Amino acid sequence: MSNTIIKTNFNFPGQKSVYKGKVRDVYSLENDRLVMIASDRLSAFDVVMPKGIPYKGQILNQIATKMMGKTSDIVSNWLEATPDPNVAIGKKCEPFKVEMVIRGYMSGHAAREYKAGKRQLCGVALPEGMKENDKFPEPIITPATKAEHGDHDEDISKEDIIKKGIVTEADYKKLEEYTRNLFERGTEIAAKQDLILVDTKYEFGKTPEGEIVLIDEIHTPDSSRYFYKKGYVERQEKGEAQKQLSKEFVRQWLISHGFQGQEGQKVPEMSDEYIESVSERYIELYENITGEKFKKADVSNIEQRIKKNVEDYLHKH
């Protein structure tokens, strides 16, 4: 097994505080700067799995960096530099407490709710007579409130977001506009790779100057679901499962082993072989999404590598 990074404990120059999320650890520095480290932790059903996935952090960080570059004409983003394969450095923003989830197809959570008989999701009416993985007449936005420290994110309607004062009406209008435009761009990027961008989530923040910017990750297999375009129509017509490029394969494996993150359920043991296969799937995701060969970083001492690369960068900038 390759080395993985599942915990970080850095002390960078000018460091003020650390926030540890499900997958990323965010170090706040002086001058409103953030160092975000994409760990190799794997989270599913809002639960962090006990073992790390080799190269996963590098894959997520590098896809997000590429996608930020390809969408910066639509909305500015927080990113300043990526001095290490697992690290992004950028400007500190005040995050909006909602995730903007947009769905082009009836898949995942939406399909599970639909199967349970619900015909409304986050205040959005769902058409009758749809099958799992059918395309919506047009993409729908189904926001979720961001969970504090490991609780489940919860569906919420646009009306409730505005009524509860989570986001102002003017800001929410901007978030919706950016979300639709980013999804359209993501769909075009995916199509060039013979993929379908099924659904995704975007997170936004506000700079101290009041500008809305894109933060966190974008169009990665952790935040998005992709299908292979080839054979999509045939599979739908035959009622077969779609060929996916996303973390869904891990969720399905967990479900088949009796785990959905519910009270009293125990995370099934993941063998080294299974972990290795997940790592290989993530590399496949990277290569399919970006159209580029994945170059494995040196993982002989990831902590030391990150520390050196970040400190060198901060020293020069």
Results as ranks from 00 to 15, higher is better:
I275F: 12
E287H: 12
N288K: 15
V250C: 07
I283C: 04
M270N: 09
E234L: 12
K243G: 01
I275L: 15
P268T: 01
Q252D: 15
R281D: 14
L254P: 07
E263Y: 04
V278D: 02
K243R: 15
Q262Y: 08
Q244L: 12
Y274N: 04
K238S: 11
S271T: 15
I289F: 06
V250N: 06
L285D: 10
R281S: 15
E237C: 11
K243M: 14
I289V: 08
Q242E: 00
N288M: 10
I275G: 03
E234A: 15
Q242F: 08
V233F: 11
L254C: 03
F259D: 05
R235K: 13
Y282M: 00
K247P: 08
S279I: 06
K266I: 10
E276H: 09
G264D: 05
P268F: 03
G239H: 04
Y286N: 10
E273A: 14
N288H: 15
R235G: 00
E263W: 01
L254N: 08
D272N: 14
I289Y: 00
P268H: 06
Q252S: 10
E273I: 05
Q265G: 03
G264H: 00
Q242W: 09
Y274Q: 13
E263K: 01
M270Y: 11
Q260H: 05
K238N: 14
V250R: 05
L245W: 04
Q265K: 08
V250K: 02
V233N: 06
L285C: 13
E248C: 02
E276N: 12
R251I: 00
V267N: 07
Q252M: 05
S277C: 03
E234P: 07
R235N: 04
